[in-house]
Write a protein that binds this DNA or RNA. Structure first.
Lengths: 154, 154
DNA sequence: GGAAAGAGGACTATTTTAGTCCTATTTGAA
DNA sequence: TTCAAATAGGACTAAAATAGTCCTCTTTCC
């Protein structure tokens, strides 16, 4: 457990697609087709990623999305924060020690150390790293030929 | 996000209580009364912790629970694994690289590195550490006197 | 034998998450 | 200038996960 949400998982897939097509702009429909995800779902993810500043959008005909910056400069922490909110294992302390009761509440110490370690691990992995290990769909071989298995229906 | 579940949170509270009363045995009702949690909830948590080997139980009248080992030897990872299953940020790879498709599936590398870092951070914190910073309930002071605030209803 | 515990598991309610859809706005092109 | 193809924003619905309750059975002490 401590699983990231399915939408976040999709988010990395979607961003990885943009990362490997940085030359062109991609509409939500394009990305949905390429990834097998539903159009409304991809659209929703893009809107959220846009608000978080990870992608830039162009409206109107021939519009679509691009990465806002290099894949090297987008971390797993960025993606998770964008789609799920600040990373924190405990209920309070989400906002990195800006809690009102700080002076009185000791939730900190132990759990905070864990939070910090997790955030660091997530910040250390870039979209480039994720992209490299991006064959999320297990592939099997039959008589030496790869079989592409279906993705869980969106 | 990447929040632990509420039950896990309760789990640490409940274990911390046992930790600070290691001399005596505590029934689910005792712990519920001491922590403000519901009896059935505490009971359910204890059953799960028992299966995971973190507490030992004594049945029958005057029965109850004790820590199965020293608070120093129970880690945050133990508690989370017991109550939520194996720690893994991604959907597959929960079972620490014993997946059937291992040879073909590359989910590994990047996410696995993150998983490993998270597991390490969780394994490094013991119940003793959690116990020290255990005032989960923010306390305020009024005219120099502490005010104990209510816990979210169980 | 009865009371006080835990064991196990079924069930229900609640909350969260995922997914869909509608309306408004923007932009390019016929 | 009008239409089509996009995104923006948000409301709504459906599905899944989580939390919480309750019942029956077993164990143990008195």
């Amino acid at each position: 457990m401590l699983r990231m949400s399915r939408l976040t998982d999709y988010g990395t897939v979607v961003l990885a697609h943009l990362a490997s097509h940085q030359d062109s702009i991609a509409s939500a429909a394009d990305v949905a087709a390429a990834t097998g995800l539903g159009v409304p779902t991809v659209s929703k993810i893009f809107k959220t990623l846009g608000k978080a500043g990870l992608v830039t959008s162009t409206r109107g005909s021939h519009g679509g999305y691009r990465l806002a910056r290099s894949p090297r400069d987008i971390s797993a922490a960025d993606v998770i924060s964008a789609l799920e909110g600040p990373v924190s294992i405990t209920d309070c302390s989400a906002s990195d020690r800006h809690c009102d009761f700080e002076a009185h509440c000791h939730v900190g110490s132990a759990w905070q150390r864990i939070n910090i370690a997790i955030r660091r691990a997530l910040a250390d992995i870039s979209l480039l790293d994720l992209q490299r290990s991006n064959s999320r769909i297990p592939t099997f071989t039959f008589a030496g030929m790869p079989i592409i298995t279906a993705k869980k229906a969106p």
